[in-house]
């Protein structure tokens, strides 16, 4: 099968890749580019484990074709920490024990980051609804919600 050439930005770097037209962005990230931090939980957009942002909008990378990434800017979990510095959300997730098995964590972090970019002071309910597309089977969500709200608080403090 002939492959298509795609030029894109991933985590701030120019990236070119070849992919089959049917391949999803998730398959390209994991199998072609070896960015396995983005996880596949369902392949049907129901679990959120494969959440990435495309031009700052969060999407399920399992429901996004690799060829659609042409000219777009993508952020995955691998681009969240800056150098040796974790993102506040990442720090708060460990502090609050917001991950048990950790498989939902990359998608959850990306989703939480997009929430805080739009709404620096979300309520618990807004946070729960924003994250409703990210299934977690381990924690019962308590600690995740606490971590996101605490990160929001710290980020607000840093700005004021």
């Amino acid at each position: 099968m002939s492959k298509q050439h795609v030029t894109t930005q991933i985590n701030g770097n120019s990236v070119e890749f070849l992919c089959e037209t049917r391949q999803t962005l998730l398959e390209v990230l994991r199998d072609e580019l070896h960015l396995t931090g983005t996880k596949e939980g369902c392949g049907t957009g129901d679990c959120g484990a494969c959440t990435v942002t495309v031009d700052s909008k969060m999407v399920c990378s399992c429901l996004f074709l690799g060829v659609e990434a042409e000219g777009k800017s993508i952020q995955t979990i691998e681009g969240m920490a800056q150098g040796d510095k974790l993102h506040v959300l990442q720090r708060k997730f460990t502090e609050h024990a917001a991950l048990q098995c950790g498989i939902c964590t990359p998608g959850m972090l990306i989703a939480a980051q997009t929430l805080l970019e739009r709404n620096p002071d979300p309520t618990e309910e807004q946070t729960r609804y924003w994250l409703s597309g990210n299934l977690c089977r381990c924690t019962g969500y308590n600690q995740i919600i606490h971590a996101v709200l605490d990160a929001a608080k710290e980020l607000r403090g840093a700005k004021s």
Binding site: R30, T36, K39, T76, L86, Q90, T94, L99, G102
Partner: peptide, 21 residues
Amino acid sequence: TSPDRPDGVPKLTGTAQYGAD
């Protein structure tokens, strides 16, 4: 006490290797 878990960072940054990785 509730210290940070020793395997936390790789799971937060996407480098931890799960079954399919």
